[in-house]
Design a binder for these strands. Structure first.
Lengths: 175, 175
DNA sequence: GAGTTTGTTCATTTTTTCTTGAACAAAGTC
DNA sequence: GACTTTGTTCAAGAAAAAATGAACAAACTC
């Protein structure tokens, strides 16, 4: 019961990469983003990577992430890809350097929109399918279905519609 | 990387309690809520319990949950407590019955508010602490801190303030 | 075209999270 | 006060998620 109990537990100081050579600034920022990513259900490594990029004054290479964060190349690669798919990290190329360089997307609007369309929308799609199946069950049951149950199903449909309407708007009003 | 990869994986049919005697209606509704709870980072059993309560026409006892969902008494007890702490489940007493009965809170407004104040606000509190530490680091660094880094820290403060302002309002505009 | 650098993939290991079930407490019944 | 019913807690086991690292591919260098 991670999420809920976490909020009830004593505020244990989240520790980051043990014997690393990260600066206090980097440690503190990373720590903050690790907390944030856990809150929204993303793995800790994504928080570490994003946090490091966020506070880095320069674009960062995969190799730098591996060394500074003491994570494996695989983790860094996969983490960066995940962050790119939700638009939280951008790829840039430095002239005369073959390596990929990464920077954090720091526009709140983009971050929220990216998260919504990467995480929420797919679920809303499958929700659509599920509601269809529910409709079928509802009809097959006929009068066997109690009125209060019928009302609850109506509520589900309403919630879903509401979510589909609001989701694309989230982030529009942020700056 | 559960959350992200999940949205990229093929839409595998989430299965619920194997050889249970749940009705198709219950199965479908539970399935839907299991998906929803996973999306917001809560354990599957919470989705099962809430889903079952949601579609039950009558208040339900702990024992019924154990039997119908084929989960342990411990799971049911802990799950119900978690759901109650975020206000998603209400306790009711049936006259002449010593057992506790539970019902699902179905007001979207309450659900959202409960989730916010149960999950988000605690994090925002610790965020406050972290920003304080960052401020200290910022001052201790002096000119060593690059302007772009200073700007990023400003952005963090702005985000945090924004979140603290908006969080309590979320849900106010839902019906 | 042999060797290097850069990045990805994926089976395995490690870590974290969740569930279980037995022990316990609390409250009721006879 | 012995027995039952109801519910909680928590150590241990099971399951799920995430990180690792070695193998691989792709693109460049000489």
């Amino acid at each position: 019961m991670s999420a809920i109990s976490a909020s009830l537990d004593p505020p244990s100081a989240t520790c980051v990469a043990s014997g690393s050579d990260l600066t206090p600034l980097e440690l503190e920022v990373i720590d903050l983003f690790v907390g944030a990513t856990r809150l929204i259900g993303l793995p800790r490594s994504l928080g570490e990577i994003y946090g490091f990029l966020f506070i880095s004054p320069e674009p960062v290479t995969l190799d730098q992430l591996v060394q500074r964060l003491s994570i494996s190349k695989g983790s860094a690669s996969q983490g960066l890809r995940a962050l790119r798919t939700i638009g939280a990290v951008k790829l840039s190329h430095q002239p005369g350097d073959r390596r990929d360089h990464y920077t954090a997307e720091t526009e709140l609007k983009s971050l929220v929109s990216g998260f919504i369309s990467g995480q929420m929308l797919p679920h809303l799609e499958t929700g659509q399918t599920r509601l269809g199946r529910l409709r079928a069950i509802e009809e097959s049951m006929g009068p066997e279905l109690r009125p209060i149950q019928r009302a609850r199903l109506e509520k589900l449909v309403h919630w879903h519609h509401r979510a589909r309407t609001l989701a694309p708007l989230a982030g529009k009003f942020l700056d």
